[in-house]
């Protein structure tokens, strides 16, 4: 069979590749709020006056930034399950809570992304002048309002380039989930190439789709940065 019909024919693998691509995007997009959110939480805690909290957060970041992402995923994937089992046994639950592979992947990616993004958030937190929150307080805003109305919008503007880079990392790191039997884009290409013994065709197709995602992300990112920087020459 020629390459075209292997991809687009009725018995072709294009459909699976497309489904895989959707899974890849879903993995990445689902990870964003958890990963970036917990990254921000980590960053805030890293600036906390409590030394123990600070040390714990620094340790967490150092650990997950210092080991291969593939290893982080394995550790979270298998370790988390063992931890949940133990915890549910301790809590006296008769049946263990079970993680499905997709969400285990999301958690694992979130952990990695949280570790990476906390650095970006810390830098951003340091870059917002103290005067801003002092001014907000003296205007009578409580600390919650100060954070969400005054600090966060500025943080996001400052952190955007860094977070954009991490998004790119994340997009490509989703491919590591393919080793955990989630059929993402790369896994779909693997299945297709094993079944048809045409690896070049399918891995190139997968690479092309990743490339489109990356280029689109780049465009969205610069657009976002432009919007966020309105009013800043």
């Amino acid at each position: 069979m020629n390459g075209f019909s292997l991809l687009f024919g009725p018995e072709g693998w294009g459909g699976l590749l497309l489904e895989g691509a959707i899974v890849t995007i879903l993995l990445a997009v689902t990870t964003v709020p958890f990963g970036f959110g917990s990254g921000l939480a980590l960053a805030v805690l890293k600036l906390s006056p409590n030394r123990v909290v600070r040390a714990f957060c620094e340790g967490f970041t150092t650990f997950f930034r210092g080991i291969p992402d593939l290893l982080s995923l394995f550790i979270v994937y298998f370790g988390l399950q063992a931890l949940i089992d133990r915890a549910s046994k301790l809590a006296g639950l008769s049946s263990a809570i079970e993680l499905n592979a997709f969400f285990a992947g999301v958690i694992a990616l979130s952990v990695v992304v949280a570790a990476y993004s906390s650095e970006v958030w810390v830098a951003a937190l340091n870059a917002v002048p103290k005067g801003q929150s002092e001014a907000a307080h003296s205007l009578g805003l409580d600390s919650r309002k100060t954070f969400f109305l005054v600090l966060l919008p500025q943080l996001i503007r400052i952190a955007l380039p860094g977070l954009g880079n991490i998004w790119m990392v994340l997009l490509k790191d989703t491919s590591l989930i393919s080793t955990l039997a989630v059929i993402d884009l790369l896994r779909a290409a693997s299945e297709a190439s094993k079944n048809t013994t045409r690896p070049i065709l399918f891995y190139s197709a997968a690479a092309a789709i990743y490339l489109v995602f990356s280029i689109l992300s780049g465009l969205v990112q610069s657009n976002l940065e432009r919007r966020a920087n309105r009013g800043f020459a």
């Binding site: 790191d173 989703t174 393919s178 790369l186 190439s193 690479a207 490339l211 990356s214």
Partner: peptide, 12 residues
């Protein structure tokens, strides 16, 4: 090379 996963490049 920066826009596609290294794992995909390695398989390729």
């Amino acid at each position: 090379f920066r826009g596609t996963p290294l794992l995909c490049q390695l398989y390729l």
